[in-house]
């Protein structure tokens, strides 16, 4: 929060080790980031396993939540990559749940947003792109490289077109990870800055009269952050499907 009179929104992103663990010189200590990753994992497992335990016809709250999440991602995958894309459904669904729950849990005050670390989002994006590349190569062999050579291009232009396709392919993991990271980072920084405004105004004597203004700002921002949390999880899932679609049938 505001240390002294300086507004310090970055404090919330510091990864502090909780339990020092050194394995052969590698600092594999259990940090607050890993703690919240475990929390997100437990939340997802709890929602899905306990939710679908009763399998009652008239679903309870938890079961309808689990079913809604499943149906939402299943229709996205089926819509984007068709039925043959459904074999990637477990990957897309776990990515979606991890991103969604870590965004939602991150919104709770005094928690740590796992997806606000570039290393986490880039790991997820790298996972997606490696799956695309490996699956494409296994399934289509060198034909997969036709992804970079769109059909019906004048041979003279080919080297330029291939270079452009390579750049746009390499930009995919970058855009996938930086989008999620930037949205979460910017959202949380704005929330913290508004929070600091309220604190500063309250301690500024006469000016305390207008302190509810940034408070209203925080309420509106949290609502917007809630929308952004869902949106980023959806965008991450649907783009994973779009990229997997390229692996399924290269050469669009």
């Amino acid at each position: 929060m505001a240390t002294g009179n300086a507004i310090d929104p970055i404090h919330q992103f510091i990864v502090a080790p909780l339990a020092q663990i050194r394995i052969g010189g590698i600092d594999a200590s259990f940090t607050n980031a890993s703690l919240f990753m475990v929390i997100v994992l437990l939340a997802a497992t709890f929602l899905m396993i306990i939710g679908t335990a009763q399998k009652s016809i008239v679903p309870g709250r938890l079961q309808s939540a689990a079913e809604m999440a499943y149906e939402f991602v299943a229709s996205t995958v089926r819509g984007t990559t068709g039925t043959e894309g459904m074999k990637f459904f477990p990957l897309v669904f776990s990515l979606f749940m991890f991103v969604l729950l870590s965004n939602l849990i991150g919104l709770i005050p005094y928690t740590f947003t796992v997806t606000s670390q570039i290393v986490v989002t880039f790991a997820l994006a790298a996972l997606v792109i490696l799956t695309v590349i490996i699956y494409g190569l296994i399934n289509h062999g060198t034909h997969f490289l036709h992804l970079f050579v769109p059909s019906g291009v004048a041979p003279a232009l080919l080297p330029f077109i291939v270079l452009i396709e390579v750049i746009s392919f390499v930009s995919r993991p970058i855009s996938l990870s930086v989008r999620l990271f930037a949205n979460m980072l910017a959202g949380h920084i704005t929330l913290k800055v508004f929070g600091a405004f309220v604190a500063l105004l309250l301690s500024a004597g006469g000016w305390a009269a207008i302190s509810p203004l940034p408070l209203v700002g925080i309420v509106a921002l949290t609502a917007f952050e809630l929308l952004v949390a869902f949106l980023q999880a959806y965008v991450f899932a649907i783009l994973t499907c779009v990229y997997l679609n390229d692996a399924l049938h290269p050469g669009h």
Binding site: I167, S168, V170, S171, R172, I174, S175, L176, V178, R179, A182, N183, L231, Q232, V235, L239
Partner: peptide, 13 residues
């Protein structure tokens, strides 16, 4: 969101 990040990422890459 997708258009913004794809466009910016393309140029940065």
């Amino acid at each position: 969101f997708r258009v913004l990040s794809e466009f910016v990422a393309g140029i940065i890459v």
